[in-house]
Every structure is written in structure tokens, then in C-alpha cells.
Amino acid sequence: MSFNPIVALGSVAAAALIVMGATSAFDRFSSAGSFVASPELVTLAPGSFDHPQPGEFLGKGHPVAAPRILTTISAPLKIMKYQVSAAEYGRCVTAGRCKAADTLDSDNFPVTGVSHIDAEAYSAWLSAQTGATWRLPTDAEWAYAAGERFRGDIEGGTDDPNNPALRWLAQYRTEAALGRKSDPEPRVKEAFGVNSKGLADVAGNVWEWTSTCYVHATIAADGISTLSSIDNCGVHVVEGFHRTYMSNFIRDGKSGGCAVGTPPDNLGFRLVRERLNVVRAALRRLGFA
């Protein structure tokens, strides 16, 4: 095709118009020329709640149910209303900052087939694009935002030192009795409705990565305080219909789980926006991390 200056100029002008016309919808931190709209956020007021801890816990050398600890979210929590969509994630892929997801979903579907590593890459890219700090929620933040839809681990209860199999069988029976059928096809955003906190699609068929590491902990006789713990940050907590734990590089939860137990249908994520002080925001806009 020969170069046609009129057509070329026309399309540049049209692109400029689109940018200008749409800027109002963009994040107020975004610099001119950025194409990234700020995702819709839900702001949750600070509060406290009883939180069953993620990980595996020993008391007196035997597995016990996870301790429930009063957890406080001390500042307003700004979290995405929707899981990151395929379209949003796709822009990071186009920018060369994210690896293409394993699953090809339509634009207004949540992105699936993404690992913890992918979620981190997207957070970094989105932060750079918007001048804000975006990150995965902690397990506690996710649970707070999930509200009534939070389930946590499928528990086998406290171990009987004389018969460890009782706990394994109890856990297996509980999980089987939930009767959740595999539901692998991602749905259009908001297909799973909005919870009491205003978040969409919590505990649907896309499980979400968190920033909390898998942990082995020994708890004290009070059943609450931790005597010692060993983190394994090569594995992160994944939240959804139930809580599970996945290696960071897993993109398909079905093949990343353990020998027994229901695997996640899909892996995706949503992010929280960190409150940023004015100086840091200005530095970031100037290109300093």
C-alpha cells in the first residue's frame, strides 16, 4: 500500500480525539497519553472480623484447626469491584509487560489462566501506568472484602493423635458433601452477582491470588498465638469458593492442586490500590519507581 498522507493524518487526528474524549474516564493520576482507565473500585470502611488463618497448624505436635484471630483492617481498603478482565490484562500483554494468559477469554470476562507471577507483573505494569500502587490483596483483606462469601479452608478439625486418618476422612467427607460440581467456563463479569460489600463475582468460578504466603505454624497452648512458623513464599494462598494453596507458577488450578481435594476451576485476580502519599505519587509520575 502506498503512503497516503491524508488518510494517515486523518487517523492520527481521530486517535487524538479518542484520547482526549476519553481522558475524563481515566485515572486522575494518569499522565497525558496513558491509555489506562482506572478500574472501578469499592472502598471498604475499616473494621475488625474473626479470621481463620491460612496455612497448616500444629498444636502439641499434631494438626489442629486453623486458629481464628480477630483481624483489623485499619485504613479504608480500596479494592477492585471486578476481577481483572481479559481486556485489561490484554493491554499489559500488548505493552509487552505481561505474558499472554493461557485462556482466551472475551474482553468483559475475567482473565483466567494466570499465575501469581502474572498477577505480580500486571500489578507492576498497572502501577507504572497509573502512578498509583496496585498490589494483590492479603488473605485477610480478601476475606474482609469477600464478607458473607468467605469460606476459608475445608477443615478436617483437630487431629486425634491415636488416629490421624479420622481428620483426613472428615475433611474428605466435608468436601464431598459440599457437592460443588466443576464449573470451568468463565462467565461475563457480574454473572455471579455482587456481595454485601459491593464486590462482584466473589467465590464464583474464578479463584483469586493473594499476596499471603503458605505457612507451617506451631501454635501455643492458648490455641491462638504462634510459637514458630516457616513461610514458603513459592506457594501463595488462593481464595474463592474455598481457600487453597498454589505454587506461584501455576496457571491452571486443576493441575496444580494436591492428590485429593477439589481444585479451583480457574485462576484470576483482583487488586487493591494502596494509598500513596503525594510525593511518591509525583515521583512515580516522573518515572521514578
Binding site: 483426613w168 476422612l169 492428590a259
Partner: peptide, 9 residues
């Protein structure tokens, strides 16, 4: 003949 309780794969 099963000798231990539990979940077997």
C-alpha cells in the same frame, strides 16, 4: 486386606 484407615488413591 486394608490395614490402615484413611483416604487411599
Amino acid at each position: 486386606t486394608f490395614l490402615q484407615p484413611g483416604v487411599y488413591a
